[in-house]
Amino acid sequence: MADVPLLEFADVGRDFDVSQPWLERVLSRLPKQRLVAVDDASFRVARGRTLALVGESGCGKSTVGRLAVGLYKPSRGTVRFDGQPMPSGSGRETMAVRRRMQMIFQDPYASLNPRWKVDDIVAEPLRVQNAAMSETDRAERVAALLRQVGLAPADARKFPHEFSGGQRQRISIARALSSEPEFLVCDEPTSALDVSVQAQVLNLMRDLQDRLGLTYLFISHNLAVVEYVAHDLGVMYLGRLVEVGPATTILKDPAHPYTRMLLAAVPDLAMTGTSRTPVAGEIPSPIDRPSGCAFHPRCPHATERCRVETPVAKPIGDGRVVACHLVGS
């Protein structure tokens, strides 16, 4: 059982219908329009480890996160949690899986209901998933959770607007931990925070992983943050994973041209005063994806084959899987 990954994506794809409203579409004879947000995504997250997904806007990393907690259903492929396909619906089986996973969101100002007190927010998963729990036990559990994330039990009586952004993110984490999940999806949990507060939250997340043996799917656009938290790394571009593997290997020696470009673009404190060649071009809209390898219009090494044929992800030996015609052939 030990080698069953906690989360597994097998060729998962997810489409969205972005057509015009029905009446307008019929009147102006437009076809239905589909946006492929994620395609052919395959990866595994082992127990107690962190897989980080990085990429720029529109690359589909947040969609992958929502697929992982069952907020979206896959259009193609299977998402497996602890070896079992993710159940859908609202039956007992779904609830049993639901309580084992939680999510932390990006915006600490939008992720807490402004009309609720902190204790109601933190206790909500308990109320839903453990209705038999007594009020006093629940209050004790909330106090313990708040202490665990570095807040005072007395904070339970306050409203979210009485807290700073970093403290709100701690409340979010306390809520996520209240049902004692094994798996957390963290969608850009620190990108709305100030740096000094970001460090607090990142340290807290790592401490909690060590203490509780949590498994994280960590979504971020910031490679430096990712390097700090991730064991494994997946790089996404326009809905596809272009490179997956151990974080240190990828960051030290990126194989895919896009990963290389991303790494080169990170502003660096050590680079004061020096100039570097900026990346050319911009991300195309996911609605009209370039043919073949979606990165080819920006890739300095693109060949005719890249324009026509979509590269298949293949292992290149050092634990990495790369989707590029030029790598590993």
Partner: peptide, 8 residues
């Protein structure tokens, strides 16, 4: 902006 655009 995205990192790659940011650098530009």
């Amino acid at each position: 902006l995205d990192v790659s655009t940011q650098a530009q």
